[in-house]
Amino acid sequence: MKRLPKTTTVPDKLFDLQFGVVRGQMLTSAVDLRVFNHTVEPTTSNDVAGSIGTHPGNTELFLNALASIGLLEKKDGAYRNTELTDAFLVEDKETSLGGYLKFIETFLFKTADDMKTAIVNGPSFNEQWDADEEAQYNATMLMSDFARSGTSQALAKAIAELPEFGGFAKMLDLGGGHGLDGIATVQMHPSMEGVVFDKAAAVRAAKEIIHEYGMEDRMSVLAGDYLTDPIGSGYDLILAKGTLNFAGSNLESVVQKIFGALNKGGVFVSIHDGLTEERTKPEAMVVGWLSFGLGSMDVSLAKERIPDAMTAVGFLGLETRPHHSPIGGDWDMVVGRKV
């Protein structure tokens, strides 16, 4: 008689991981179909189906599934948005993230076979896209949606809590793209002025957004490549959020350039992810960067890499505190001072 094998664990997590793909597909499908535009007020599945032109029976199944994962509420047969979807998935709201979510999807593998191909063959960095200024401009504008959804506001609040903040006169948002981090930070200060530094396509977007928020008198832009070009000087504050990940082997020289561009008593703030436990944790960071790393280039950093570079060039009094990011969990906010 053959006995069944003894087991000491359960396979639940494997199936949770597999069905996680379905949740992502549900979100993307709902955004593509503009479901949440039609559930601002309580609405039946038949009415939603009529509005978006879908099969009534399958629409009800789909809406039930959206309710099961917290993207809709269902009461007395009617569906309505949750606070989350009402804030971030209704089109035409300033905090809408639908376009940004679809942009992020372009970096994800469509199938497991696509991921397997990248693992086998290595990354295929698209140099043509890197040289396509229109694509970079469009990407920057989509990333501005993410910034408006609360990340820039939270960053500005954190920087405003620095003890030196009141004495700042000029700041640099290095690799600032759309410029909203700089705009939000300058708006927290009564008189400080700001400069957004990035490539030409990105600062084109920043100029438009600076105009949108009526900040032309206090915000300006500077186009260039921070790896090779001057970044200006006379700054009291330099901010680099998710910027130094892309410095690669030039990290130390870029941090040295930042040190030189600061006034004495100036402050450098780097906000970045940081991997630990031999680059296997935190899970959200490792998994969040995986598709980009496999398909293009690995820009993840070990937790100590940027602080070590800051110490090496002369920054003193380094402080590290957690800074929440909706993507990747808590990042590190490292503050260094030029004494």
Results as ranks from 00 to 15, higher is better:
T151R: 10
L172G: 02
F165M: 04
L63S: 01
A147H: 09
T95A: 11
D181H: 00
W129F: 09
F146H: 06
G166S: 13
G99E: 01
A112S: 08
L84Y: 08
T185H: 08
T54E: 14
V90W: 09
G179Q: 02
Q187P: 05
T54N: 09
D92Y: 13
A158Y: 04
E91R: 05
A78F: 12
D181G: 04
G176N: 08
K170E: 04
A139R: 12
F107E: 03
L63K: 05
D145C: 10
A160S: 15
E60N: 13
D173S: 02
R148P: 15
T151L: 08
I52E: 10
A135G: 07
E193R: 15
R80N: 13
K116Q: 07
H178D: 00
A87P: 11
I159L: 15
A118L: 08
A158P: 15
A184E: 00
D86T: 03
E133C: 05
L172N: 00
G98D: 00
L180C: 07
A169S: 15
S124H: 13
N138Q: 12
H178L: 03
L155I: 02
I104R: 14
T54S: 15
T185S: 04
M188K: 13
M192G: 01
T59N: 07
F107S: 11
I69E: 04
L66G: 01
G99M: 01
F125R: 13
T106W: 14
I159W: 03
S152T: 00
S191C: 07
F165S: 01
I52W: 08
L72E: 00
E133D: 10
E164F: 14
P56G: 06
E73T: 13
